[in-house]
Design a protein around this nucleic acid. Structure first.
Length: 589
RNA sequence: CGGGGCGUAGCUCAGCCUGGUUAGAGCGCCUGGUUUGGGACCAGGAAGUCGGAGGUUCGAAUCCUCUCGCCCCGACCA
């Protein structure tokens, strides 16, 4: 391709609304333009990279034996109601009502549709099977952010495996897991695989492929790196009752109410009473309901230490699973606690809520301060087990909080970092197949539900992550596999030198003929402009052709990631470029 | 959904507080010239419903109301 025949509107200035480097560079390097919040146009350069990333994914899915299909983006709401996921995804579900008054959802994922397809499976002989598509997805994110990293419309590879047995599922899962490793290796991305929370998907085991980064989700790892988990999932060793805490309990006088007018928050209470957040017991009241069983509703009280955060997915687990938790509204809190929001305490709650869930760390406290269930009042000298129960029919002690840097897992200290999710693999089980009738007859003629897995890759994020971790102050440094072009020819002074023109055009033609993905900067621009644009768009191999080196019969071959060029005789130019292309690809295997 | 900020030329932004003729700059674009190995220079030029609607006023980019869009922070912490 010739620069003057395509559309590469690079920009010098940093776009005002782009916060992170990948977003800034994607706009500056003419890969994308924003159309609306969380919606982007891919320009020729960006689309070339996106297609290359998608193609890598496709090749590895095919190699793993998955079957490519395309499912509709518009899906009937009824299908979503059948699985209860209209509720689970409620807030991010983008919908459109058609002329007949039917409600359609813009697919945020496709378990329902693919499972209704799999309902055609009749026999164990047809299993296993794995369907995938590379298609747009829509999620009405609360807050689109970081350019294409969190957009409302995005390109996702979604695969769905169907197996007859759990062992089969494990194999299908492993195949996808291995395919993902190859995909991200080929895309030149360094990644870690972390234990994750299954969130709205449901299911049991799930792992995320994360690219370490300054931004993104919080990741937790043991210091020896043997355990990695998303903060949503990260486990902690339960704190145990220390001797000091035991002694404090033994010495504790009876509970004492204190007047704390308008002092509702932890910080305010600590300041008012001169205590520490770690000595506070936070009582959070949740309303839980089940998307599968509308009659299943209960109020859940969760106790965590004042310096800890409740982890809602852990709390869902401790509650028995299968429920959606929302913080209770003010009326419910008043009913349960008899006080305004901000003054709840556990003392009398066990009898008033459906479930009282106590975090390990609270159960290990000596003496605490908490709300008095009386507006504008707190109580001191609260002893767990004495003043509120740690066991009982509707009381459980469990891990329901986020890990902190003070915690350990398996006795090892935890370190925190961040990462961007580029892939996610789930073992789903039979949740969807049972509801949507994806059943088969086994060897004995018994009808069984298919055992499912699902597997996602954010294709746009592959690009954004590659840039996030591959750039310098001049621009993008692409891995060759997903660079918009593999080679950029930069003729210098072509208007003055016939020799430059001839050598450049010859090399361009030779490379095209050899199947190299080459772009030639045929603009009548000064060299500085071309070099700066070349660095900005980040094509991995640059060939500079100018009278300077041609005087000695050479062209200059420079890698984007290296500072200095290498001189190559004109006669060897095409082969040297091809070898370099091959070498860069070989590095990604 | 709550809080804050922004919306003026293709892009980045100034002007607004304290209303006053033809609304500015840099970059980009067009023309001519000089330049030519890391975002050149000179001269000339085109280009703006000042996000939209309503209001106040003799007069509104500027003040007021509503509205739309975009960005950031928060998202309930008892």
């Amino acid at each position: 391709m010739r620069w003057t025949k395509t559309f590469i509107p690079t920009v010098k200035e940093i776009p005002g609304d782009a916060e992170v480097i990948s977003h800034q560079l994607m706009i500056r390097a003419a890969l994308i333009r924003k159309v609306a919040s969380g919606a982007y146009t891919y320009l020729p350069l960006g689309f070339r990279s996106l297609r290359k990333a998608a193609q890598i994914v496709r090749e590895e899915m095919d190699r793993a034996g998955a079957l490519e299909i395309v499912m509709p983006i518009l899906q009937p709401m009824e299908l979503w109601q059948q699985t209860g996921r209209d509720e689970v995804f409620k807030e991010i579900l983008l919908t459109a009502t058609d002329h007949h008054g039917r409600v359609n959802v813009f697919s945020p994922t496709a378990e329902e549709v693919v499972t209704s397809l799999a309902a055609e499976i009749r026999s164990f002989r047809q299993l296993p099977v794995n369907f995938y598509q590379i298609h747009d997805k829509f999620r009405d994110e609360f807050r689109p952010q970081y350019g294409v990293i969190r957009s409302r419309e995005f390109l996702m590879k979604d695969a769905y495996s169907f197996d007859a047995t759990v062992e089969g599922l494990n194999e299908s899962y492993k195949k996808m897991y291995d395919a993902y490793c190859r995909i991200f290796d080929r895309a030149g991305l360094k990644y870690v695989i972390v234990q994750a929370d299954s969130g709205g998907m449901g299911g049991t085991d799930t792992e995320e492929f994360m690219v370490p980064s300054e931004i993104g989700d919080t990741l937790v790892a043991t210091e020896d790196g043997t355990y990695w988990a998303n903060i949503e999932k990260a486990q902690v060793d339960p704190l145990v009752l220390s001797d000091a805490a035991k002694a404090a309990r033994a010495a504790a006088p009876a509970m004492a109410e204190v007047h704390t007018p308008n002092v509702g928050t932890i910080d305010a209470v600590c300041k008012f009473l001169g205590t520490q957040p770690a000595d506070m017991i936070k009582t959070l009241v949740y309303a839980a309901h089940s998307p599968e069983d509308p009659k299943r509703k209960l109020v859940v009280a969760a106790l965590v230490r004042g310096d800890h955060d409740v982890n809602e997915s852990k709390l869902v687990g401790a509650t028995g699973g299968g429920v959606i938790l929302e913080l209770a509204d003010e009326a419910t809190i008043r009913t349960v606690t008899g006080a305004a929001v901000g003054f709840a305490g556990p003392m009398t709650l066990a009898g008033k809520v459906g479930k009282l869930v106590v975090d390990h760390a609270v159960a290990a406290m000596g003496v605490g301060v908490t709300g008095a269930n009386k507006t504008d009042h707190h109580v001191r000298n609260v002893v767990p087990g004495r003043d509120f129960p740690l066991a009982g029919a509707n009381v459980v002690v469990a891990d329901i909080r986020n890990a902190t840097e003070a915690d350990t897992w398996g006795g090892k200290k935890l370190k925190f970092s961040h990462g961007l999710e580029i892939g996610h693999v789930f073992k789903l089980g039979t949740k969807y197949s049972e509801k949507l009738g994806a059943r088969f007859d086994d060897e004995k003629g018994q009808s069984q539900p298919c055992i499912m897995g699902c597997y996602g890759v954010g294709v746009n994020r592959i690009l954004a992550c590659a840039i996030e971790v591959g750039h310098d102050d001049k621009g993008i440094i692409w891995p060759i596999s997903i660079a918009p072009y593999e080679v950029l020819i930069v003729p210098v002074g072509a208007d003055r030198s016939e020799n430059v023109r001839n050598v450049s055009e010859k090399l361009y033609a030779d490379l095209l003929a050899a199947g190299v993905d080459v772009l030639i900067d045929d603009r009548e621009a000064r060299p500085g402009v071309k070099f700066n644009d070349a660095d900005l768009i980040g094509v991995p191999i640059r060939v500079t052709i100018g009278d300077k080196a041609l005087a000695n019969g050479n062209i200059e071959l420079k890698l984007r990631r290296e500072p200095a060029p290498q001189l190559v005789p004109v006669a060897n130019a095409a082969s040297a470029v091809q070898e370099t292309v091959a070498r860069l690809f070989a590095e990604l295997k």
